[in-house]
Nucleic acid binder design. Structure first.
Lengths: 111, 111
DNA sequence: ATATTATATAATTGTATACTGATATGTTTA
DNA sequence: TAAACATATCAGTATACAATTATATAATAT
């Protein structure tokens, strides 16, 4: 039986990873690796619809992975912490190792 | 417009992170930080039902995050790469920075 | 004030996936 | 071989999530 504190810590971590676990959000995060971008720029780079981008940005902001600053009529987003970039880099390294396995992972749940 | 190769790389990475994005799977991975464990041990430590654990283990195995070796009637699972552990550690560090933000992220999608 | 541009939210819908319980398969020992 | 134990799979249900469309809010310009 897990302690409540452990359950909470694990849920937090799962939530953090969930922020990275969607291709649209990853596209946004990688777009922000080069520096702050406003929503229009993000929409252009990622090819997401504006509401969709906004929606994912809300999630990323609420989860603390990005921060937003309004400048005039633009809202500029940036990564909230350097370690967010580190996580993306480290993920690349793991991927290089296990890429084939992940690529073949079409399996979801027991399907 | 993203190039196809970029889309594939991003989808791969999203899939990798998805392996980490569920509390049950995270519990299993953290249990394996201490070394190889068989399914019964994993079930005991994580308090998951045996079919549920088996299901998540299948996913983790297919995604290349863990490897399995049968020994007698036991199947021992272990992390497939040291960097999997590194990712978990780095996630802890990011969490320490943005924990409050993530904790307050009760928002799912547009809810 | 009105129009225009930029961004955010709401409601809907389809799909993915996690969990439970039941059952099947595989492995060892008697 | 039979019994006991370990692990995997299947079917059904409930929930979570993403994409879309429409609309609302905020800021600037005319």
């Amino acid at each position: 039986m897990l302690l409540t504190a452990e359950i909470n810590a694990i849920s937090l971590k799962a939530k953090l990873f969930r922020g990275f676990s969607d291709p649209s959000r990853l596209s946004i995060l990688e777009c922000l690796l080069d520096g702050p971008r406003n929503v229009s720029e993000i929409v252009t780079v990622t090819d997401l619809s504006q509401p969709n981008a906004s929606n994912h940005l809300s999630c990323l902001r609420d989860c603390g992975l990005v921060t937003a600053v309004q400048e005039g009529r633009y809202v500029y987003y940036r990564l909230s912490d350097d370690r967010v970039a580190n996580l993306l880099t480290l993920a690349d390294e793991v991927l290089a190792e296990v890429a084939r396995g992940v690529y073949e992972c079409t399996r979801v749940s027991q399907a």
